[in-house]
């Protein structure tokens, strides 16, 4: 174990009920900050358009509702025909019963090769007699913003408040922890251990708080994602970001980075306390 890990271990051992409680509050405040931040991404996107019973569509996706009277062979013919079109990247068949019990027919969920190809794709699909309805996420008149401006402002205020509160509480929490670790700090000052040796473990403790909060958030977001994917009918219309491809992963990575950065900032605030007079050996 090197010096950094040794001091970090000693620091963790010095955590008592009071400082531990305050640091737990810091983790929750960072979690709140990240949750509010994530809300801006998950709630604050244009909801993909869909019919009352259709699938949720991401950008560049089209849903072609097939006639319920089609035989399986006819459905396969339509599927194979559309798959060969140059505007089409991918075609998936969905049973409409997956979306609404008791409804017949099926849906072809079609991913266009690019956004500019959607218009011609819609036109070609509409000309096929076996298709009774076509939905697209790129139809402008169907787009709705799920968050109003006051809600956005509220979220931003919440973000600022939780970040500020986490800094304040962390200062107190680290103050308590370093008081419990005060003799050790004074001994290190006395024996010539440079601050650059014993401050990084304190920063690392802040980073650990941020990491813990980020992981909590990632777990929560993925749980919501799985609920949204497996039960589309239960999905909140405004939380459509949960099923948009790649968004949950991107958000998780962003939250992790943000949590680590905020944790590092909090740790730096804690580390700066070691320079105070009360931790000097001859104060």
């Amino acid at each position: 174990m090197n010096t950094f890990l040794f001091i970090l271990n000693e620091l963790l051992r010095a955590i008592n009920t009071k400082s531990g409680g305050l640091l737990a509050v810091v983790v929750l405040l960072i979690f709140s900050f990240l949750a509010l931040f994530s809300s801006l991404f998950l709630l604050g996107v244009p909801a993909p358009t869909h019919g009352d019973t259709g699938p949720l569509l991401a950008s560049g996706e089209v849903a072609a509702h097939l006639s319920p009277r089609l035989s399986p062979e006819a459905v396969q013919d339509v599927y194979l025909e559309i798959r060969e079109w140059e505007e089409v990247r991918q075609v998936n068949f969905l049973f409409t019963q997956e979306l609404e019990a008791g409804r017949g027919g099926g849906i072809l969920r079609i991913q266009a090769r690019n956004l500019s190809a959607v218009a011609s794709l819609l036109e070609r699909l509409a000309s096929i007699p076996a298709i009774v309805q076509v939905d697209s996420s790129t139809t402008p008149q169907k787009r709705v913003l799920s968050l109003s401006t006051p809600v956005r402002i509220g979220l931003l205020i919440g973000l600022a408040t939780s970040a500020f509160a986490s800094l304040i509480v962390s200062r107190r929490g680290f103050g308590e922890l370093l008081t419990a670790f005060g003799k050790e700090i004074r001994l290190m000052h006395l024996s010539g251990t440079p601050e650059r040796t014993f401050q990084p473990p304190i920063v690392a403790l802040g980073v650990l708080c941020g990491l813990l909060a980020s992981l909590l958030l990632i777990v929560a977001v993925y749980l919501l994602h799985f609920v949204a994917v497996s039960h589309p009918e239960a999905l909140l219309r405004s939380a459509s970001g949960l099923v948009e491809s790649g968004r949950v992963l991107a958000l998780s990575l962003l939250s992790l980075l943000l949590g680590l950065a905020l944790g590092g900032l909090i740790g730096a605030v804690g580390a700066s306390l070691t320079g105070s007079r009360k931790f000097q050996p001859l104060s």
Partner: peptide, 11 residues
């Protein structure tokens, strides 16, 4: 040991 470890000595 605490003092020596923080000054960079191994265990």
């Amino acid at each position: 040991i605490f003092k020596l470890r923080t000054l960079g000595d191994f265990q």
